[in-house]
């Protein structure tokens, strides 16, 4: 997450990491919860959290572990990777773990690529469904809701194992208790070396703060003054 201020690296190809805060991506909170519920309903099984990144990624992984995930695997990688490179790293882990279901978030709030889960399915030639808002597990398949634009739901029958990208609102994520957060410190995060990530799918030439364009007319002053102006504008525009 980027706060109110931003500085760029010297080559202007990325944001200076000092200006970033790390948190568990909203979509991944829902994905973790959904995995936990399915395993709880099945009465057996395991939820494994996987992340590709440097040590900074472990805080977010610990959040998943505190929610109840059993263990973590971090693939050691540094710097910005594109979603297909991340998927290459994830693919090796998914293969070695023989997962019955693979969840990713629909998108990361920082990058809005909405690509990593799909790319993973492509590399492993697995069935996949993007933007899932409901899952019912069957035998060798699952019935899922895929949420289209305007909220229209496409009910899809998907063969499993499959990769599903999970949309917010699919469930109500649990809060981790303080005790669970403490216990999560003890859970295992295995660190694996990264394999061949292949050629990048793209390269950032330059990052910059978007030009403000015409932009908004900013209303300055105290709250009373601003409210007064808003009141006037509303009256005028509705007249």
């Amino acid at each position: 997450m980027l706060g109110d201020e931003v500085e760029f690296t010297d080559d202007e190809r990325d944001v200076d990491p000092d200006y970033l805060d790390f948190a568990l991506n909203e979509w991944d909170t829902y994905a973790t919860e959904e995995a936990l519920r399915l395993v709880e309903a099945a009465g057996s099984g395991e939820v494994v959290v996987v992340s590709v990144g440097d040590e900074d990624a472990e805080d977010a992984m610990r959040r998943c572990l505190a929610m109840g995930a059993d263990r973590g695997i971090r693939v050691e990688a540094e710097g910005r990777l594109d979603p297909i490179q991340v998927a290459r790293a994830l693919a090796e882990v998914v293969q070695s773990e023989n997962a019955d279901l693979v969840f990713a978030g629909v998108q990361s709030s920082d990058s809005v690529q909405a690509a990593t889960g799909g790319a993973l399915a492509g590399l492993l030639d697995m069935p996949s469904v993007a933007v899932v808002t409901k899952i019912e597990l069957g035998d060798g398949k699952a019935t899922v809701n895929r949420e289209l634009e305007g909220g229209l739901v496409d009910v899809v029958e998907v063969d499993t194992p499959a990769v599903l990208t999970i949309q917010t609102g699919i469930n109500e994520p649990r809060y981790a208790t303080l005790r669970a957060i403490k216990q999560a410190e003890e859970k295992e995060i295995e660190v694996r070396p990264v394999g061949d990530l292949g050629e990048p799918a793209s390269r950032i030439r330059k990052m910059f703060v978007p030009p403000k364009g015409e932009g908004a007319e900013m209303l300055n002053g105290g709250a009373a003054e601003v409210a007064q102006r808003i009141h006037e504008i509303v009256q005028e525009k509705l007249a």
């Binding site: 290459r88 690529q113 690509a115 889960g117 993007a130 949420e147 289209l148």
Partner: peptide, 24 residues
């Protein structure tokens, strides 16, 4: 399109073919 349908197949295809890719 960077749409729900697009998200379904396009990243998978780009990854499989190893071609250049960007979304949104």
């Amino acid at each position: 399109g960077f749409t729900v349908n697009g998200m379904g197949y396009a990243p998978a295809l780009a990854a499989k073919l190893g071609i250049g890719f960007a979304s949104d």
